Amino acid sequence: MTHGLIDGYVLREFACSARDHMLARLGEPGFGVTAKAIGKRRTEIETRCAEAVKAAEKSIKTDTDIEKSLRDTGRPVTQHDRTQSRIKLGEARHYCQLMLHLAHGHGPRSDDRSLRTRSREAAVKAEPPSWRELPQPRSGEPERSVR
């Protein structure tokens, strides 16, 4: 679900949207689910979302610092810059995926459709920095152009 999310801003937005969706689906105690269990799930969701948002903000900061450095010094983009940007974006995706494991583990399977819709909506807004080279698409995926 995080595949098309290629920007830290969009990852942060998706993480918050997914969190809101999962919290809304927690429901009320009953039918074998105690208030304590629901409270624990709520805490897990909030914790994982906070981790995902923090990682997305690190990705945003890295991209912003690289862009500022490029603008101030006029130097070309180095492979190290690209690598650091990809690392931070990968970490942010990973934390979003950890949060989505909670939705898969505790939520009904019908939630997948709603979360995929939210992911697609966020991916439409995604726009990577112009200096970052995107990896080659896997087979069966549409190619993206770099501006």
Rank of each mutant, 00 (worst) to 15 (best):
M99Y: 02
I45C: 05
I45Q: 08
D20W: 06
L70I: 00
R138T: 08
M22V: 13
R75F: 00
E91W: 05
P142L: 09
E13V: 11
E121H: 10
T47F: 14
V124S: 01
G8T: 06
D7K: 06
L115Y: 01
A55G: 12
L134S: 05
G107E: 13
T43W: 10
V146R: 13
V53Y: 03
R12N: 03
A50E: 13
H3N: 09
R25Q: 11
I45L: 07
R132K: 12
M99I: 00
I66T: 13
D63L: 08
L115P: 02
R113L: 07
R82E: 15
F31I: 05
A24P: 00
T43I: 07
A50Q: 12
K125T: 06
D112M: 09
E57I: 07
S59L: 02
W131I: 02
K54H: 14
V53Q: 08
D112Y: 08
R118V: 01
K40G: 07
H94K: 14
A92F: 00
T83D: 04
M1C: 10
D72Y: 00
R118Y: 08
G74H: 07
R41N: 10
G140C: 09
R116L: 08
P128C: 00
I60K: 11
A122I: 03
V53M: 06
F14E: 10
L102T: 09
R25Y: 02
E67Q: 12
L102K: 08
T73K: 02
P129T: 04
G32S: 01
T78C: 08
T73Q: 03
R118S: 10
R120F: 03
Y9D: 12
E127F: 00
G4A: 06
R71L: 13
S69P: 04
M99G: 03
R19P: 02
E28L: 12
S17F: 05
P29E: 12
K54E: 15
D81T: 01
S69A: 13
A122Q: 08
G30H: 09
S85F: 04
I45W: 05
V33N: 03
T83N: 08
K54P: 03
D111M: 15
T43D: 15
T117F: 11
K61A: 15
L5K: 07
G90Q: 12
S145Q: 11
R86E: 11
H94F: 10
L100M: 13
T83Y: 00
P129N: 04
G32R: 01
A50C: 01
R12V: 00
M99L: 14
S145A: 10
V53K: 05
R19V: 01
R132C: 04
A92D: 01
E46G: 07
T43C: 09
V124Y: 03
P135F: 01
K36T: 14
L98N: 08
T78N: 09
A123F: 03
T64Q: 15
R120A: 10
D72A: 07
D112E: 11
